Simulated scan of single mutants.
Amino acid sequence: MIVTYSPNIRSLLIAFIMLVFITPVTTCAKNEPSASEINLQKQIDNIKKSELQLHNYIMNLQNEIYIIRDQIELISNSPLLNKQSFHTKTPQNDGRSLKEKELYDLCIKMFNDHKYIESKNHLANFIDVYNNSSLIPYAIFYYGKCNYKLGRFKESIDQLTIFIKEKSDNEHVPEAMLLIAENQIALNNISDATKTLRKILKNHKNSDIYGTAQKLFNMIK
Rank of each mutant, 00 (worst) to 15 (best):
K149C: 05
K49C: 06
P174W: 04
T23Q: 05
Y5N: 09
R69C: 08
L40Q: 14
E182G: 02
D45G: 07
T88G: 05
L179Y: 11
T23N: 04
K165F: 10
I220G: 12
N31T: 14
K215E: 00
N112T: 09
A15L: 05
K49I: 11
A124S: 15
L201W: 08
I140N: 08
M219H: 06
P137M: 11
Y148V: 05
C107P: 01
N203K: 10
L61H: 05
L98M: 02
I140E: 11
R69T: 13
Y142H: 15
F86Q: 01
T23R: 00
Q41M: 13
I68R: 15
Q43N: 11
S207L: 01
P24A: 02
N39K: 14
D70M: 12
H55D: 15
Q62V: 13
Q71K: 15
D113M: 10
K215H: 01
P33H: 05
Y210K: 01
P91E: 02
K48Y: 09
K165M: 04
A139L: 10
L52M: 08
K48S: 09
L201A: 03
K167S: 11
I190E: 02
L106M: 06
T194M: 02
Y104N: 08
E118A: 10
E100L: 11
N131V: 03
I127Y: 09
P79T: 05
K205D: 08
K115V: 01
L106S: 03
H122T: 04
H122I: 04
H114L: 13
Q71N: 13
P79A: 05
T196V: 07
K154D: 11
I180V: 14
T88C: 02
E51I: 15
S11D: 09
L106V: 00
Q53H: 10
Q84C: 04
N218P: 04
H122S: 14
I47L: 15
F86C: 01
I44R: 08
Y210R: 00
K165A: 11
L103A: 01
D94K: 14
I38R: 15
F126P: 01
V173L: 10
M177D: 07
Q41K: 15
H122D: 10
N170T: 04
N125F: 11
T23W: 06
E175R: 07
E155R: 07
S85E: 06
K199P: 01
S34R: 05
K199Y: 03
K101H: 10
N39P: 02
Y57P: 03
L150M: 14
G144P: 02
T27G: 06
K42N: 07
T212K: 04
A35Y: 06
N39T: 14
T161R: 05
E51G: 03
Y143I: 00
I136A: 07
A15I: 06
S85Q: 00
S6N: 12
L61T: 15
F141P: 01
I47A: 10
H204Q: 00
K115P: 03
N8S: 14
